[in-house]
Nucleic acid binder design. Sequence first.
DNA 1: TAGTGGTCTAGACCACGTG
DNA 2: ACGTGGTCTAGACCACTAT
Lengths: 263, 263
Amino acid sequence: MNANPASTANPPGQDGAGTGASSSGSPTFSPLYQQIKGLITQSLETGEWKPGEIIPSEMELAARYKVSQGTVRKAIDELAAENLLVRRQGKGTFVATHSEDRAQFRFLRLLADDGAEHPHVSRLLECRRLRATADIARQLELKPADPVVLIRRLLQFDGETTVLDEIWLPGGLFRGLTLERLSEYKGPLYAMFESEFGTRMIRASEKIRAVAADPAVAEQLHVPPGFPLLSVERVSYTYGDKPVEVRRGWYVTNGYYYQNDLS
Amino acid sequence: MNANPASTANPPGQDGAGTGASSSGSPTFSPLYQQIKGLITQSLETGEWKPGEIIPSEMELAARYKVSQGTVRKAIDELAAENLLVRRQGKGTFVATHSEDRAQFRFLRLLADDGAEHPHVSRLLECRRLRATADIARQLELKPADPVVLIRRLLQFDGETTVLDEIWLPGGLFRGLTLERLSEYKGPLYAMFESEFGTRMIRASEKIRAVAADPAVAEQLHVPPGFPLLSVERVSYTYGDKPVEVRRGWYVTNGYYYQNDLS
DNA sequence: TAGTGGTCTAGACCACGTG
DNA sequence: ACGTGGTCTAGACCACTAT
């Protein structure tokens, strides 16, 4: 009989999830689906649904949050676009993970000159615990001299030593991270951080430069000092745009290139 | 009275735009909104709606294509996500353009070390017409020895010579492009290509390497030979993934860096 | 056959920009 | 006051996957 249930169920401040500040004096306005998105993100963050697991169906979530399926759908759509969730028709919606998928190339876009994606192996150099320098502390939003973990490693593509990485992590989040545990783990580093330490890398920002290899780096990469290297400074973020990794990489781009798409 | 108009109006093969191959024997299936997206793209391609102009409202397009507003909306949503259209609430939907917006940074992501986005000026070196090499012809999907235009230029940031670009364009698409016309035009190169030659760059793919400056390049950039430079090889595409520009750039990354976000 | 996500529709109301 | 895009709902059907 009623033409539009929304006209009675959805005026400001009457429904379960609320409509944000539309009835308050604040000039802000938050769409319902954004609030649902936030609630779903919370459940991801707290581990209610873990990487690789299926989350409740759209209908179940709609009932839980007391909104329509369409609103849940729009929230999930955005989370899927941000690579936090993966939809699979006929099966359900799953929490994204760094373990599978080939999500590996997402964070290491090094291709051979012929365009092929070659596999690589990691060679760990060290894993030390020390105190953050002022610079690292600032980037990780820690206090100076807070404990951090430093990992140094080489990556070999087809046996060729191609990448030298220095990775800084907040000590508090990565207790029990040792060289031994690192070397035992099979798979991408981010997959280990996700499954072993509950820290999931969501996005990263990189500063790329061309630099001359200094003697120490040159020796590790088997190139002469002064050799041109790609310098990649990365800061990775987890939920809530919290920085949880600083990475400095030196890439030998002979036979390989860094692939980037502008769109 | 009827609970669901769609149940009578939308069975396979009965509506205006059609529902793809759902009633044919073909295994393909194309959602209605994808077909609408294709029709809108066509109108963009043919110039029915030009860069900067407003396109018809969602209601008008829905009437034109004989679908619901929601279906048009979904088509426009995707085109907006691909930067082909720009939505402005309360005003309408507009054809994206390289002229305004600050869309400039989208295709030249060079920032100063302090993270600031500095303006730059272009210094044209030459604009010649010649025959494509085998390599350039292949990348532009031309026949070998087809006519092409070569532009060479320098970019200066804060007076510092920072970038040397070599740009190849298909001769057929850029008739009448001369050094004089280039130097007269104010604004980004892509804005000129768009407004003067009707060729709009949609996306680009880059291969990035660190290289040692060869003597000729070094001289232009005022650095010593062998100096580490960022080499950026770009292929730009217009509608239908048709390549229309090959660009080779050398960047001096002292005081500046190439910004990239992984997400 | 049942359940999931994916598409499509129709209609109502809201926020924004312009008269 | 009006038109635009933006949100929200409700319901039907389609496509895919598993049982």
